[in-house]
Design a binder for these strands. Structure first.
Lengths: 207, 207
DNA sequence: GCAGTTCTGTACTGAGTTGTCAAGAAGGGT
DNA sequence: ACCCTTCTTGACAACTCAGTACAGAACTGC
C-alpha cells in the first residue's frame, strides 16, 4: 500500500561501482553518483545511506560476485583440480566483471579489484572498507588453497609444497595483475603473466 | 641578493608524500599538506605549483629513490646474480622507504608503491601520473630482466625461460605484495611470499 | 475514487576546498 | 647602513560538496 521503488537496486549499485572505479571514492561526488545512476539525492539517501552507504553496498555486491567465481570454478574432484586452477588463474588476472552480460574488454582499465582499489584509497581510515577488502582476499585465498591441496592429492603438485604459501603467492599475483593491468598493459600481457605463474607451480619430482 | 628559502625542498616533498600515501590524493587538502610540511599556502604555490605540482615532484623524487634500488642491488657480475635477485626480492616486497634513515617498519601500512597507489587513484584521468607510474614500473622491470639474464648466463636459471616474462611475473608479485601488505598482512607474510616466489624460479635441468 | 504511505526531485545550509593577493619579513650586495 | 629582490604569512573570495528538509508524485488497498 505504498509507492514502489522505480529503480533496480542492483543496476544502481553497478553504476555506482563503475563510477567509484573510474574516479575513486573521494573523487566522486554525490552528484556524480546521481548522474551515473539517474537517481536524485533524496532517493540515494533514502534507499542507501548517502555516499558511504552506497559504497558499502556496492562492495558487498562485488564480494558476492567475486566469491562466486572460485566456488564455481575451483570446486570439484581432485582429478582435474590443477586444470581448474589453471583456468581460474587465466580468468582472475582479467578482473571480476560487473555482470555476466558485460563484455570484459570494455572494463579493461577499470577491471582492477574493486575492493582492493577502495582499500588502498581509504582503507587506512575506514575499517569497514578494510574488513570487506580482507574478506574478498580471504575467500579467494581459501578456495585456491583448497584447490592446491586437491591437486596435491591427485599428484599434480609437489606434495612437499605448502598449499597456504602457494595460495598466498597466487593471490599476490592476481592482485598484482590488477595493478599492472590498470596502468597501461593489455590483456595479452596479463594472460602471459598468468601462464608464467602457472608454469612455475612446483610439479612432483618424477621418480 | 634575495631572501633564500627557509625550508629543505626534499624534506617538504617527503612530508607531502607521506600525507598523500596515508590519505590519498583527493583525500588530502592543501591545508593538510600545509600542516604536514609546515609551509604556508603561498610558499606551496610559489615553490611548487599547488597540490598537483607537489604531487608530481614528490613522485619524481620517489622515482629517483625507487630506481636507485635495482641499480645498486641488481647490477654486477653474472656470478651471484641469482643471489642478488633473491636479496632484492626480499627487500622489494617491503616497499621503498622514504629515506635511508627512516625505519621501514614504521611505514608498514604506507609502504605500498607510491606511484602505483597514485596511479590507481587518479591515473585514469591524469596522464602525467600514469606516465610516471609506468616509468617506475619499467625501470625496475628492465633491471630485473637483466639480472635474470645474468643468472641465466651463469647457469642458475633455466636458459629456456623467457627473461622478460619472468621479469613481468616478478614485478607483478612485487606490486601485489604492496597491495597485500597494505591491508592487514604483516612483514612476515610478505617475506614468506618473496621466498616462495624465489623458490619457484625455474632452475636449469640437471643433466 | 479516496486515503495513506512511500518514493522522487529540488532547493537550501553549513562546512570545506582551491587558488590568489597584498602586506610584512629576511637576507645579500654595495 | 640602505635598497632591492625574493620568500613568507595570513586572509579573502569564489566555488564545490555532503547532508537535510520540504513539497509534490505515484502507487496500493479498500
Amino acid at each position: 500500500m505504498a509507492r514502489p521503488r522505480s529503480f533496480d537496486r542492483d543496476h544502481v549499485l553497478h553504476a555506482a561501482e563503475r563510477q567509484f572505479r573510474t574516479s575513486g571514492y573521494n573523487g566522486t561526488s554525490v552528484d556524480d553518483i546521481s548522474a551515473a545512476t539517474g537517481l536524485g539525492r533524496g532517493s540515494l539517501y533514502g534507499a542507501f545511506d548517502g555516499k558511504h552507504g552506497v559504497l558499502l553496498e556496492a562492495m558487498a555486491g562485488y564480494f558476492a560476485r567475486l566469491a562466486q567465481g572460485p566456488r564455481t570454478m575451483l570446486a570439484g574432484p581432485d582429478e582435474g583440480a590443477l586444470e581448474r586452477l589453471h583456468q581460474y588463474l587465466l580468468r582472475a588476472v582479467h578482473g571480476v566483471p560487473l555482470a555476466a552480460d558485460v563484455p570484459p574488454a570494455s572494463d579493461r582499465a577499470g577491471a582492477a579489484c574493486f575492493a582492493a582499489k577502495m582499500a588502498l584509497e581509504i582503507g587506512a581510515s575506514d575499517p569497514e572498507v578494510k574488513r570487506l577488502a580482507n574478506d574478498c582476499f580471504s575467500v579467494v585465498r581459501a578456495a585456491v588453497a583448497e584447490c592446491v591441496q586437491a591437486a596435491q592429492r591427485n599428484g599434480d603438485i609437489d606434495p612437499d609444497a605448502n598449499p597456504d604459501d602457494l595460495a598466498y603467492l597466487l593471490l599476490t599475483i592476481i592482485r598484482g595483475s590488477d595493478v599492472v593491468g590498470a596502468y597501461g598493459h593489455g590483456p595479452d600481457r596479463l594472460t602471459s603473466i598468468a601462464e608464467s605463474a602457472f608454469a612455475l607451480l612446483p610439479r612432483p619430482r618424477h621418480s
